[in-house]
Each structure stands twice: as C-alpha cells, then as structure tokens.
C-alpha cells in the first residue's frame, strides 16, 4: 500500500469500509466449545435419566463430568486469548456474554437447593440467550435456531414431569449446540 497516494473522498470511504469489514471478519468462531459442551451435557442428561430409572440413589453425580469441561474451557479460552492478534468488540462481547452466562448457571446450581432443584427449565431458558446472541454475533443462522430450540424445550420442561426434563434437556442440547456446532465446524474448515 502506497502511503502518500492522493485519495478522493470516495476512495477514502471505500478504504474505511474495506478495513472495517476486514476487522469484522476476524470474529473468532468457536465450534469447539459448542461440540465439547454439547456432548458433555447430552451425556449428563441422558445419564441422569437412566440413573433415575434405575433408582440409583445419587443420579446427579453424573454432572461431575462437567467439572473437567469447565476447567478445560477456562484454560482453552485463556490460551486462545493470548494467541489472538486482534481482539474485536464482537469477540469481547461474545466472551463476556458466555462468562456472565457461566456465572449465572453456577449460581443457579449452587443455590438450586433453595428452590427444590427445579432448575432444569430455567437453565434451558438461560442457555437460549447466549446461544441466540452468538448466532447474531457470528451471523450464523443455525445458532439462532439453536437458541430458539432451547426456549422451546424450556417450555416443554416446565410442562413435563421432573425425570422427563432430562430427555427434554438432551433434545435441547442436541438441537441447540450439537447441530449448529457441527455446521459451524464445517464452515470453519472451509
């Protein structure tokens, strides 16, 4: 790029638009996290349903499998942030959106005993917000669809009995994270 070539007003505007588009295109896509959490939560939901059916006394123990996933997510995000060469506003918004979501979910789980552990539909409702908004940020319709699916299955969970909430949760995570996650992965590798 020649620094001192004279520019017309139109050329200036075209340059600004092109550069802003370049920076926008830099938004990090995160198929990996959707797939990791999609599979972990799907297994936990189905496991919980099976353990309840088997009358196992501590079915909720299956959720312990999320602990390594939390640890790995924090490690991977920190590492990725260190490696990135430019942090756009949208990257930052997306990151904080998921962090606030994580804080709310952990709070809900920690104080679940105060509301008799009737937290499944609420968790699904919470999930719908960052998933839908990630679809908006990444301009990726399947994630918006995923957000809507979380909302629909939250309503289903409010209606069905406690044990069937885990099947509803498994369906929500399959449509909400896994389907968009695999589509996003395919888009990333293109």
């Amino acid at each position: 790029m020649k620094p001192e070539a004279p520019m017309t007003a139109e050329q200036s505007l075209a340059l600004i638009t092109r550069m802003i588009d370049q920076a926008k295109g830099n938004v990090t896509r995160n198929a990996f996290y959707f797939l990791l959490w999609g599979w972990i939560v799907l297994i936990a939901n189905l496991g919980m349903f099976v353990l309840i059916k088997l009358s196992y006394p501590y079915p909720f123990a299956i959720w312990l499998i999320t602990i390594p996933a939390w640890a790995y997510t924090m490690y991977a995000s920190f590492k990725r942030q260190k490696e990135t060469s430019a942090l756009t506003h949208l990257d930052s918004i997306s990151g904080w959106l998921w962090i606030t979501f994580g804080v709310c979910i952990i709070t809900l789980i920690a104080f679940g005993y105060r509301i008799n552990f009737q937290i499944n539909p609420v968790i699904l409702l919470f999930c719908s917000i960052p998933t839908f908004m990630s679809g908006v940020i990444l301009r990726f319709t399947p994630l918006k669809f995923g957000g809507v699916m979380f909302w629909i299955f939250a309503i289903v969970s409010f209606i069905v009995g406690h044990e069937y909430q885990f099947l509803s949760g498994a369906a929500a995570i399959a449509f909400g994270y896994l389907v968009p996650g695999y589509l996003l992965k395919r888009k990333e590798s293109q």
């Binding site: 620094p3 060469s85 506003h89």
Partner: peptide
C-alpha cells in the same frame, strides 16, 4: 488521517479493541 495507510490503520483500530502490529 487523509493518507491511505494511516486511515487504514485507524479504520481497523476503530473496529478492534486492540490489534497487534502483525495483524
């Protein structure tokens, strides 16, 4: 700002919170 390279840099930085030299 009315210089191609400086304007390009400012346009990139207006969209990014922080950008490395290599970017």
């Amino acid at each position: 700002l009315h210089s191609q390279l400086r304007l390009a840099v400012m346009s990139l930085l207006i969209s990014a919170e922080a950008a490395e030299f290599t970017f």
